[in-house]
Amino acid sequence: MYFLKNKFNFLILVIFLSSCSTMNVTQEQVSSGKVKTVKATSSAASESFINYDSRAVFANATIYFEFDKSNLTSKSIQILKSAVNALDENDSISITLSGHADERGTREYNLALGQRRAETVSDYLVLNGINKSRITVKSYGEEKPAVLGQDESSYAKNRRVEIN
């Protein structure tokens, strides 16, 4: 009973305070905002050694694309024909196709676009008799430009698929 009465008094006090004044009273403690720094190591670097043989075969094999496009040009097809021949002659090697985009547009869309370009090249190779198990397809989007620069000629060099 005593408790109840006490609570009731308190309630009255609150109502009294809130009715006679519109002033806000607050009290707060700032948060600590603890942050831990992590260092990632790259397991990507070692990977390039695996395909060392193929690197020699396709030293200059880069396929270029139009803005926001992933279709092959006739010049690209010429390069890919010689790639097919090289793969036919060295059937022990497997290759990685890395797709890239220029910096215009959003990063994730460009990642998907780079992938599409690499898939297009992969499809061409498979269609011409190369076993799909020999091909690894991946994309770096706009994250690893071949050339830095904000002009069309730089952009054109970055919209590519590298074969190695």
């Binding site: 519109t22 002033m23 806000n24 009273v25 607050t26 707060e28 403690q29």
Partner: peptide, 26 residues
């Protein structure tokens, strides 16, 4: 012509910037 808010913000060590941000938000 009246006070509409009174607030206390207190921090853990060396958090003066945070205090200022909390005050700004208040």
């Amino acid at each position: 012509g009246s006070k509409i808010r009174t607030s206390t913000v207190f921090g853990i060590p060396n958090k003066d910037r945070q205090l200022a941000h909390y005050i700004s938000d208040g």
